[in-house]
């Protein structure tokens, strides 16, 4: 009961903060709403009893990535004029219609019996032990390849940035 309540509240909060993120003009506010969006996603994950994933989510996103975002945005310190650059009415229309149409398509796929919140309480806990076993046993190769890929991406982005300087 409580779990379902938190699930619905967290999902509504996630949608609301995501909307607020893309509609803010001030980038600092947008970043803060993005952070609250990520936190509400973490709450959503923890209502599914995936506590390990939820803690990792907060640790990685709000603890590291978003702090760097905030850092950069604050260092850039955008001027008021730059913030008030406005979009044309066509672009505004496009930006509103596109996500709405995507949402309609996704929601249209759902059947009424899919929305069954009581399934939430029947979920099994994915523990830290099981997650690590999956990562370092069954999917070990994939895991290592992904980490190598990320390092390559970092090196690549540094290279691209250096050419411009």
């Amino acid at each position: 009961m409580l779990r379902e309540l938190f699930f619905v509240a967290a999902s509504l909060l996630a949608i609301l903060t995501a909307l607020l993120t893309v509609t803010r003009k001030n980038p600092i506010y947008a970043t803060f709403f993005l952070i609250s969006h990520l936190i509400s996603i973490a709450i959503l994950i923890s209502t599914l009893k995936l506590y390990y994933l939820s803690a990792i989510h907060i640790l990685v996103y709000t603890g590291a990535i978003m702090i760097l975002f905030l850092f950069v945005v604050m260092l850039l310190n955008l001027k008021e004029e730059e913030l008030e650059k406005d979009f044309s009415i066509h672009l505004k229309l496009l930006y509103t219609l596109a996500p709405i149409s995507v949402m309609v398509i996704i929601v249209g796929q759902l059947k009424p019996q899919d929305i069954n919140l009581s399934k939430l309480s029947q979920l099994n806990v994915i523990s830290f032990e099981n997650a690590t076993k999956a990562l370092f046993d069954k999917y070990f190769l994939a895991f290592e390849i992904v980490s190598a890929l990320i390092i390559l991406a970092i090196i690549g982005s540094i290279l691209i940035a250096k050419k411009k300087v």
């Binding site: 990792i56 907060i58 709000t62 603890g63 702090i67 905030l70 830290f128």
Partner: peptide
Amino acid sequence: LNIGILYIIAFGSSVILGIL
């Protein structure tokens, strides 16, 4: 909590958010 130390590290880092 099953993930005690991880939880503390995760929430401890949210202090920076308030400081910024």
